[in-house]
C-alpha cells in the first residue's frame, strides 16, 4: 500500500480504490459452495427459468456475494495496515446476474477521533453494474490505525 491509511492522514471525500468483478454462473456457483448458500435461485439456471421470480427468468447472484465484494473494497484498502471493519449496513437494490460486471467503491464521509486505536471513519459504499445501474448502497464504519 503506497498511500497511508492512518486515521490522521485520511481526508474526507477520499475515494477508496474500486473493485471490479465479472459475475458468471461459475462465480455464483463457486460462491454458493464457499458460503454454503445453495439457494436454487442462485445455483439452478433451470429452476430459476421455470420459477421466473420477479420476471427475471434467470439465476441471480447472491446478495451476500455483492456484500462480500463491498467489504473487499474496505479490506483491500486497509486490512494489511491494521484497519478493521466495525459495521456495515447494506441495501441491495437490484440483483447482479451472470454476465454482469460489478464495480464497487466507497468514500470517506465522516471521521470520529477517539483514543488511540479506536478512531474510526464512516464510509458510503456503492456497487454498480456495467450499465451504471446502482445495485447496492450502504454505510460502513472502519477503525483505522
Amino acid at each position: 500500500m503506497s498511500e497511508s491509511v492512518k486515521f490522521e492522514d485520511i481526508e474526507l471525500d477520499y475515494e477508496l480504490p474500486t473493485l471490479k468483478r465479472e459475475i458468471s454462473q461459475e462465480f455464483i456457483s463457486m460462491f454458493g459452495c464457499g458460503s454454503l448458500d445453495f439457494n436454487p435461485i442462485h445455483m439452478d439456471p433451470i429452476w430459476a427459468k421455470n420459477v421466473n421470480l420477479f420476471g427475471f427468468g434467470k439465476t441471480i447472484g447472491h446478495g451476500q456475494l455483492t456484500i462480500a465484494l463491498l467489504t473487499q473494497v474496505i479490506t483491500n484498502w486497509c486490512y494489511a495496515e491494521g484497519g478493521k471493519l466495525k459495521s456495515i449496513d447494506i441495501k441491495l437494490i437490484w440483483p447482479l446476474f451472470p454476465g454482469d460486471t460489478a464495480t464497487c467503491g466507497g468514500k470517506i464521509v465522516a471521521k470520529h477521533p477517539r483514543k488511540k486505536d479506536i478512531s474510526f471513519v464512516d464510509l458510503d459504499l456503492y456497487a454498480d453494474n456495467q450499465k451504471k445501474k446502482r445495485v447496492a448502497v450502504g454505510k460502513a464504519q472502519v477503525y483505522l490505525p
Binding site: 420459477v51 421470480l53 446478495g63 456495515i88 447494506i90
Partner: peptide
C-alpha cells in the same frame, strides 16, 4: 428456495 436478500 426463492428467498431474496434485501440487505444486511
Amino acid at each position: 428456495p426463492g428467498a431474496i436478500n434485501p440487505g444486511q
